[in-house]
Design a binder for these strands. Sequence first.
DNA 1: GCATAATTCTGCGTGCACGCAAGTTTGCTG
DNA 2: CAGCAAACTTGCGTGCACGCAGAATTATGC
Lengths: 212, 212
Amino acid sequence: MTAERPGLRERKKQATREALRTAALRLAMECGPDNVRVDDIAAAAGVSPRTYNNYFSSREQAIVAAVTAERAAQVAAAVAARPAEVGLGDAVRDAVVGQYTDQGDHAREALLMITTSPALRACYVDTVTAIEEPLADAVIARCPDIDPLTAQVLSAAVGAAARVALGQWLDATREAPSMPGFVVPSGSLPDLVRAAVTPLVPALDAAGSPRA
Amino acid sequence: MTAERPGLRERKKQATREALRTAALRLAMECGPDNVRVDDIAAAAGVSPRTYNNYFSSREQAIVAAVTAERAAQVAAAVAARPAEVGLGDAVRDAVVGQYTDQGDHAREALLMITTSPALRACYVDTVTAIEEPLADAVIARCPDIDPLTAQVLSAAVGAAARVALGQWLDATREAPSMPGFVVPSGSLPDLVRAAVTPLVPALDAAGSPRA
DNA sequence: GCATAATTCTGCGTGCACGCAAGTTTGCTG
DNA sequence: CAGCAAACTTGCGTGCACGCAGAATTATGC
């Protein structure tokens, strides 16, 4: 139903994208983030270096994409999945927090590597921008009477909050190894994300139910 | 008082930065944004091309900086200048809106040129990120008991709202010339910014006065 | 099945960002 | 004033993003 026509063409594109992501992450983990050239990734995926940039617009993007993958769609789905009774604020907050809980074991060491390189950290933090549009759509679907601009602003605000939390956490985990005493000064990532999104709950609720 | 020691060194640096900004904007206005090379800007400012990248990390940044300039500090000052009686929400909103009202005549045509190039638009939109840190400081100064993370999140949210408003407005003004009928479909920029920040006011007020 | 239109991949060239290692200027101190 | 250390500038080399145009591949009409 949702997949109208797989189409040989489209499938090949997704395969290439997947191959690039995987190769990028593998090489980065093996050789270290700074010892991987774009040409290497392209070669490992069996395409031209030029083709790499038809799929990803920066060297770091492919590596990060291997970890981020379908996050945007998942957030939107999670918001839609919350029962209609709970307020918009709780629904969005729980959906976002859920995205950063129970990371797989493999993802955890990848995250640690991303911590290594400033460029990778910046790129990873920027990926949360991708949730804005799907999230706005989900918000509109939940509250059809909401002003589209408001939905967009609130989604962007949530994205910004997640960005702040992620930045804090990445910095904290990077500093940690030097200080043997404290492991994670700021607590776990899900807790941090929750704490960051919580201040926005009043705004979300206010927009979600105008007559309350 | 605040300026401890200007110092010959620091003055030269600011002069170079200013020269680069000005030259960049002038050349961009004269030749069109896409017909200006970094080397040209550097030459016009009398420095090496390499030095250019010691001050600005992208070609567009210098052009945009000529328009943006001191915006970040002004927002922080504007927040601090609001009387202590008004709520945090109103104070921040008015301060941000004030930044985008009564643009100079010269700035207005520069804005129009920025509309021309996608890269410039993206860069200009990204500059609002710079207000986050000063704004967070101003918020903390206003509400000393606030959680620093909350202040940071709210500032980032406000920045995101401004970003959305700016994006909308830039897109709208770009589409406008093709449609002779409508000039600005979405209204004036200050109104748009106000409308974008308003949904966040409940969150700001909630954080600003916990006991209300 | 085949011709044709639409996409995608690829090589090439250009402009750009940035690390590195001198060379130069500035600020401080004896 | 001499001399030293820190900061800034500059040239060079490398890797990268992306526009462009031609070849290769896929979809579509007959």
